[in-house]
Amino acid sequence: MRKELHRITLRQLQVFRTLCSTLSYSRTAEEMALTQPAVSLQMRQLEELVGQPLFEYVGRKLYLTEAANLLLAASTDMFNRLDILDMQLEALQGTLHGELRLAVASSIQYLTPHLLAAFRQRHPQVSFRLEVSTRAEVIRRLRDNLDDLVLMEMVPADRALDFFPFLNNPVIAVAAPDHPLVGRRQLKLAELESQTVLLREAGSGVRKACDEFFQQKRVHLQQAMDMGSGETVVQAAIAGLGIGLVAAHSASAWLRSGQLVQLDFSDLPLFRSWCAVHARGKRLSPVAEAFLAFLREERALVKQLAAPFG
């Protein structure tokens, strides 16, 4: 290793990471409680040690150079290792301490806070950072190693991932109480070909599951409407726009209130599982390991917490 890199300080890296986030010397100075000239000096010294420019202006906008992206990735690994060390030292004293960084697909966003609250009852010193994203964004976050764990369904098969299915996620058909199919028993999926069907947007886990299911069953929807979220599918069904295909928990409150009715299709619900996912070979923090153990060992509690959403 070049000797100059040994002279890089944690403070320089902290300032650098903040500047990468803000892309503004003045905002970085404010966040780091420094003067703007002090931020500029720290970055000039860091560039001398790295031996390459880290930032460049195009017009009036600041951009990271390729060297900066490499340094940012390396510094992220370093600070993650320090976070893990902190947790491990706390664990030696018998206390689980630290932050769980969790990204979840929108289909499980309502249940997740209840899981975290139950986990925190066992480990009160733990804090959380929760990101709710689309399926595509969750997959990107997995690729970029931005989180400790991800909760999602339909885990990509083309990536090196370890995952643990911890809860069923049934997809059901719902409609307004005055829909013509309400009250009919053992409906065939072919009935959907002549109906307006409300679906999650392309790329979502529920939509991917539905598309694969209909292809397998040779059902060809003629009147499908794409909706941007499970909530939108539910509200569109309540409004009478058509039959909604949605994760059961997204519709649970409206089913209980009578604003929606679950239709009795013989081949539904369509069962998929929510999974806890991380990159294969990823070094998990003690908090992440403990949360995985919670999902594995507290299956009855997890189902109990999920019951109001099912």
Rank of each mutant, 00 (worst) to 15 (best):
R2G: 06
E4L: 06
L5H: 10
L13M: 05
S24H: 05
S26P: 00
R27H: 04
A29P: 05
M32W: 07
T35G: 15
A38Q: 13
A38V: 07
V39L: 06
M43S: 10
Q45G: 01
Q45T: 08
L46E: 04
L46Y: 09
E48K: 00
P53M: 08
F55L: 09
L62T: 10
L64I: 08
T65Q: 09
L70H: 15
L70Q: 14
L72H: 12
A74V: 02
S75E: 09
R81N: 07
R81C: 02
L89I: 14
L92F: 13
L92I: 11
Q93G: 15
L96Q: 13
H97S: 12
S107A: 06
Y110F: 04
L111I: 07
T112M: 00
A117E: 11
P124A: 09
S127Q: 13
S127V: 14
I139A: 05
N145I: 08
M154N: 15
A157K: 04
L161N: 12
N168S: 14
V174E: 07
A176S: 08
D178V: 13
L181W: 13
G183I: 01
Q186M: 06
L189F: 03
A190G: 09
A190Q: 14
V197H: 01
L199G: 07
L199I: 14
E201T: 10
K208T: 12
E212N: 04
Q216Y: 09
K217R: 10
V219P: 06
L221T: 11
M225E: 12
M227C: 12
E231I: 08
E231D: 15
I243D: 01
I243C: 00
L245V: 03
V246R: 00
S250W: 03
A253K: 09
L255M: 05
Q262D: 02
D264R: 01
S273I: 01
V277K: 05
G281Y: 00
G281S: 05
G281M: 02
V287M: 07
A288P: 04
L295E: 11
E297Q: 12
E298N: 14
E298T: 07
A300V: 09
L301H: 07
L305Y: 10
A306V: 03
A307K: 06
G310N: 11
